[in-house]
């Protein structure tokens, strides 16, 4: 079918444009602060792309993804700082380990639905966070891992500055986008979306919904774990605080803001929220000098509510739909006049 091929070409064109943008951006913005923000956007995008596969396509929620993000970070941090293995091996161990944890815990958890599932995943995230804080001998407890975590390196080239790390992170983000795109437009992706559309109908067509929910949950946990490993080797120090409930909520907000049922939404959602957070860090202390970090919760909450009310499909598709609607109305008005 011609239209179908055209749509596929269009998707590939988008990926190509995105690749060019990634490579060009640091050449324009070669300021270390901007680069470090972009690296964090890339790392968070990987988590949120995985989360969107789970939330937007399969229609399941997770409020515990910061836990998987942390599992990746801690596995990488502990293995490389204690046993001095290659960070790449540690990243792989983290991804496989997190995948096994997600799969095992997913078996009972995915018997639940909606609010109950949200609570179960929230509990899971909290438990993982408590382990980071309490297992002092292994994780260093609340003050974090004191042993130094090495930088990542490729064939002797140590990725110790933002410029080099930027390219690594965004290359992996690009890979994450391509894989997610392949999954979404496949038999598996259709099965996932059918679960979201109608579990009744999906089952009547032979989709083993439990199996597919579990697999996409595992895949999204692996995405989070890899992002966590990248974070650990970028900051080279980890403590439990970035892997708590607040981060899980932040990921969900980013996913919703970007648009759940889209592969590109996450990147824009993450970029939007991260830039906003950074901006607030400079603006808020000037307005309210005694404000703590809690204002973030207020801002995230407000954004979530506003998006859910006005742009339920997320920023990108929502704005596109608004534009379509406006063009449609304008077309009608032109016909009438």
């Amino acid at each position: 079918m011609q239209d179908l091929t055209r749509r596929k070409r269009f998707r590939h064109l988008f990926i190509l444009l995105f690749t060019i943008l990634i490579f060009a951006l640091p050449l324009v913005l070669n300021n270390n602060y901007y680069l470090s923000v972009l690296v964090i956007i890339g790392i968070h995008s990987i988590v949120v792309i995985g989360l969107c596969l789970l939330m937007g396509y399969a229609g399941q929620i997770s409020l515990g993804h910061a836990g998987f993000y942390g599992l990746g970070a801690y596995t990488s941090g502990i293995i490389t700082s204690t046993y001095h293995t290659s960070p790449w091996v540690a990243m792989l161990v983290g991804a496989i380990g997190t995948g096994i944890v997600a799969y095992t815990i997913g078996i009972p958890i995915f018997k639940l639905k909606e609010h109950y599932l949200a609570l179960a995943t929230l509990g899971l995230g909290l438990i993982i966070h408590i382990i980071f804080v309490e297992e002092v001998a292994l994780t260093g407890g609340p003050s974090g891992l004191t042993r130094p975590i090495p930088y990542l390196s490729i064939g002797g080239l140590e990725l110790s500055n933002d410029f080099k790390y930027y390219y690594l992170v965004w290359l992996i983000t690009l890979l994450a986008v391509i894989i997610a795109n392949n999954v979404v437009h496949s038999r598996v992706g259709r099965a996932l979306r059918s679960i979201h559309g109608s579990e009744f109908a999906a089952r009547s067509l032979g989709v083993d919904i439990g199996k597919f929910k579990l697999r996409v949950f595992t895949l999204s946990a692996i995405y989070a774990s890899i992002a966590g490993s990248l974070y650990a080797h970028y900051i080279t120090f980890i403590s439990p605080s970035p892997f708590g409930l607040m981060t899980s909520i932040q990921f969900v907000v980013m996913a919703v803001v970007g648009g759940l049922s889209s592969i590109w939404g996450p990147v824009f959602g993450v970029a939007g929220i991260t830039v906003l957070t950074e901006a607030l860090k400079t603006v808020v202390p000037q307005l309210i000098p005694e404000a703590g970090g809690e204002y973030e919760i207020v801002v995230y909450g407000t954004i979530l509510v506003v998006i859910m009310i006005f742009l339920p499909e997320g920023l990108i598709s929502g704005l596109a739909n608004l534009y379509e609607g406006w063009r449609h109305r304008k077309g009608q008005a032109d016909e009438n006049s």
Binding site: L4, N182, V183, S186, R187, V188, G189, R190, A191, R193, S194, H196, G197, S198, F200, A201, A202, S204, L205, G206, V207, R215, L219, S261
Partner: peptide, 27 residues
């Protein structure tokens, strides 16, 4: 029980689920 989040064609394509076998790795 139409899948409202999909195109007409994709709805029918889900119907081919039992007659095809691509798994997550293949996807």
């Amino acid at each position: 029980q139409i899948f409202n989040n999909m195109s007409v064609l994709e709805n029918v394509m889900v119907g081919r689920h039992t007659k095809s076998k691509t798994g997550l790795l293949g996807a």
